[in-house]
Amino acid sequence: MENIPVIKTERLTKIFPMGKGEFSALKGIDLKLGTGEFAGLIGPSGSGKTTLLNILGSLDSPSDGKALVLGQSIGKLTAKEAAKLRKEKIGFIFQSYNLLQVHTVYENVEFPLLLLNYSANERKKLVMGALEWVGLTDKIKQKPPQLSGGECQRVAIARAMVKTPSIVLADEPTANLDAVNSHNILQTMARMNEELKTTFLFATHDDKVIGYLKRKIYLKDGMIDKDVTN
């Protein structure tokens, strides 16, 4: 199962203009990720983790090389096609949760389903299912400012998972959490990966996250330094 590549990059390069010169954030990355992998991009700041995550999440495009996500070439997608890919197949989890502050827990989790035009009944069923996964069914009417950091991140996970995406991209998901909450969150994600076979790709330099990863891809100066599978 893990042999089917959901993510594949070939000589992936990303160059940003910097003043009069250029800065190469990614220098010819070759990478394959199969279905159900629980992998992480590990490296210090400036190593290219977030840039790679952005490209794989179709939020940015490569300067050179190829990035195929679920068979679709990111560089060739129109803005509309990229939005469709994100909407249907990719879930995002952010360091700072990025919940919609004026909406309730229920509405935050419901939002991706609204974009997918699910009916009200289907939405209710899926939202409650996702909130059950993260143990927040008793907080559906609360708003993010009324929740703890750990609860917010659980809502973010439920929002990412509610549409059962093929890939979840998580950028430093535990950076704002304490050790107990971090482990809870990581256990939830590991369980989802285990049971739903969703591919998880993290960008992190947090040891707690690294401890949960089944595959560790170390980045250094925009290149893969090491790729270790447990």
Binding site: G57, L59, A79, K80, A83, K84, L85, R86, K87, E88, I90, F92, F94, N98, L99, L100, Q101, F111, P112, L115, R159
Partner: peptide, 14 residues
């Protein structure tokens, strides 16, 4: 920006 960014990331078209 936060709200708009997350909406776009989730898949809402610009």
């Amino acid at each position: 920006y936060g709200e708009i960014g997350v909406r776009i990331a989730i898949g809402e078209e610009k």
